[in-house]
Amino acid sequence: MNLLLGVLLQSWNILLESSIFILFGLLVSGLLRVFLNPGAVATHLGEGRFRSVFKASLMGIPIPLCSCGVLPAAAALKKQGANNGAVTSFLISTPESGVDSISITYALMDPIMTVMRPVAAFFTAFTAGIAENLLGRPDMFRPVVPDLSCPVDGCCDGVDCAPDVHRRHHGFGEKVTAGLRFAFTDVWGDLALWFLFGLLLSGAITELIPESVFSRYMGGGFSAMLIMLGVGIPIYICATASTPIAAALILQGVSPGAALVFLMVGPATNVTSLTVLTRVLGRRATAIYLTAIAVCAVGFGLLVDRIYHVLGISARAIVGQAGESIPYAIELAGAMIILVLSVKPVWHFLRSRFPDGGRRPGPTGDGSLAAPEHCAGST
């Protein structure tokens, strides 16, 4: 019983930490839907095995979204015509880096880590995206046909309507309203069940892993990086929150390379995001995503340790304030909004799995069996 309560508490804490980022990600997905030209997305992120991946990797570096918050935005890009490689790249570079985490890295660590963090994020994203596009099935590379119809109310198909005319069909307020409706109904409806399932798994893993594992047996070397890899993949932690933890680990004797592994893997992977990725991109693409992150993280970790050794620089961090955290009241409000938005998708899932409350058709008053609802009136 205590273990169950601990898992639920960990899951609730993770939801609190991620709720605002998820809502922000949903907001981004809605705005992408109504303001981003699907034709432009298909051109820049849907065509070309290399060019689209490069653009997606670069585009994700400055955006401050965590691994959960980036999922809705990536799902929107997928629906707008982006190929799997570009979506994979965006899913890696965005949570691994961001303008906020870069600035905090500079404040808490040093210029080397500040530079290597976004560079490693870009290289990892580009590698994973290229691998996805090269190893993808041939039919994945057929020309993308994006949905050009009006995203607000479908007033035109976007093909026979001139772009300048199409842009004047709806005002700014109408587009924002339609974007929010799309984000909080369609997008979250696709992700809610998988997110909640992954949230419980994340809570269980977080509850079972002792806190001392972060500072014990990881004094440096390849084995320390493998341990950090194993710890960082399943847990949830955003790029900003991972920075002070990594700084503290360095102060406790963990090598900067092992700390970089944690900074790359922790924000980009967790059980929650991996379960949703399986839904959005499929199991094969998720395997490529995870393998690329693991290999590149260890590779860059070894490279960073080598750089510090050659330059003779101590990796001691200058620990300071990482910035004001989000007030608890706002986190609580965000978590409650997420739960409220999840009621309808969960209810529809339960209704589809257990129709009529799970009751089996029984005998009618005349002794015959009642026909199933979908067969009523048939001959």
Rank of each mutant, 00 (worst) to 15 (best):
C296Q: 05
C68K: 02
A370R: 14
G81V: 07
G30F: 02
A82T: 06
D164E: 15
D164N: 15
V7E: 00
L260I: 08
Y308T: 04
L369S: 07
S52G: 13
A329K: 07
L311C: 14
C238W: 02
G220I: 03
Y289H: 10
T177N: 13
S97F: 06
I288N: 00
V176G: 08
K78H: 15
I237D: 00
V231K: 03
A322I: 05
A82E: 04
V261N: 01
V7K: 01
A86Q: 01
T185G: 04
P64H: 04
Y308E: 04
P361G: 02
N84M: 10
A317D: 08
F21T: 01
L191V: 14
A125Q: 11
N270Q: 05
T272V: 14
T124M: 02
S223I: 15
L199C: 03
S242V: 11
T364D: 12
S101T: 15
I250L: 11
L36P: 09
F262S: 00
L5R: 12
T379D: 11
I205F: 12
D157A: 09
A294T: 11
D190H: 13
G257V: 02
I326W: 04
C66E: 04
G39V: 07
I288M: 03
A241V: 10
L332G: 09
H170I: 05
G357L: 01
I130H: 04
A224D: 06
R142P: 12
G154Q: 11
L9P: 06
A183I: 05
P138R: 09
R216G: 08
V70I: 12
L260Y: 06
T286W: 03
M336I: 15
K175Y: 09
I14E: 03
I318T: 15
R353G: 13
T206G: 01
R351H: 14
S149N: 11
V295T: 10
P64E: 02
M113P: 07
V298N: 01
N133F: 12
E174T: 13
I318Y: 15
S52W: 03
A183Q: 04
